[in-house]
Amino acid sequence: MSTEEQNNVSVNLQRRKILTGATGVVGAAGATFLAVPFVSSWQPSEKAKAAGAPVNADISQLQLGQMLTVAWRGKPVWVVRRTSDMLGGLAPLDGQLRDPASLESIQPKYCQNPTRAIKDEYLVVVGICTHLGCAPLYRPAIGSPDVGADWQGGFFCPCHGSRFDLAGRVFQSVPAPTNLVIPPHHFLTDYLIRIGEGPAEGGVA
């Protein structure tokens, strides 16, 4: 084989390597583009969330007395893990509340009970005051300085002074007309709550 022929063979081999490498890169890139939308489809899009798609709240790390905030429909939803003392303090407040039995307030039927919950320990509530839409503050401690010495724990709206107990029930003589809203929800597991979907729609209470 002449020197010229050897050079031609060498050039052809190099071209093949370059083409093979380029094809592999394009193939890998194509696989990535295919995989991303597929993986993304496992989670609701931001548009779907805004439209009301259910979201999950992992409460496995939530300690007694703590509150977790989850975004649903562009609103904050609070999950509060109540202690036995918090739950025990609800009934004595009935005489001070505007709607103690939640007859005029918004909640699913399965949460129209004294604790406004599926499981007494966990309150799931929309964190927006029913007066003018401000965000109340979580004040679980008895006698919180910014609320008053007679405060037994709950939620306080700093905008206009509305107060709610630890079941989201509104006190008398404050601007808010109704209790805080309880969204549809259910427990997927002991530590995973689906917010935006009731038991009959996709799970058990």
Rank of each mutant, 00 (worst) to 15 (best):
T32H: 00
L97R: 12
Q112W: 02
L13K: 13
Q96M: 09
V126I: 15
Q172G: 06
A149T: 11
G74S: 12
L34G: 13
P44H: 07
A167P: 01
F156E: 05
Q6K: 15
L192W: 05
G88L: 03
L103M: 12
T189H: 02
V26D: 03
F38C: 03
E46R: 09
G196Y: 02
W78A: 14
P37H: 04
V124P: 01
L19R: 14
T3M: 10
G168C: 06
G95T: 03
N12W: 12
A149E: 14
S102C: 11
N113C: 08
L97Y: 09
G154P: 03
M86P: 00
L132T: 09
Y138T: 02
E5Y: 09
S105L: 03
H160R: 04
Q107R: 12
T23V: 15
D146Y: 06
Y110A: 05
S144G: 05
Q6P: 00
F187L: 04
R73F: 05
L123D: 05
Y110D: 15
Y191P: 00
W42G: 07
V25K: 00
A35L: 01
A71M: 13
G127F: 08
R169P: 01
S173Q: 15
R82V: 04
A31F: 12
G154N: 04
L90R: 02
I118Y: 06
A31R: 06
S173V: 01
G161F: 05
V26Y: 05
R16L: 12
N56E: 15
V39K: 01
P108I: 03
P184A: 08
V70W: 00
L97K: 13
R15V: 07
Y122G: 01
A176V: 12
V25A: 15
R169Y: 04
L166C: 10
T69H: 05
V147K: 05
K17Y: 11
K75Y: 07
G161L: 06
P92K: 10
P54D: 09
F187W: 13
E4S: 15
M86A: 07
G168I: 01
S45N: 09
V181S: 02
G161E: 04
A48W: 10
N8S: 14
V55K: 10
C129K: 05
E104V: 10
R139K: 15
A149R: 12
D146R: 06
A135Y: 09
A117E: 01
A71K: 13
E46N: 12
A135L: 11
V125D: 03
P199G: 09
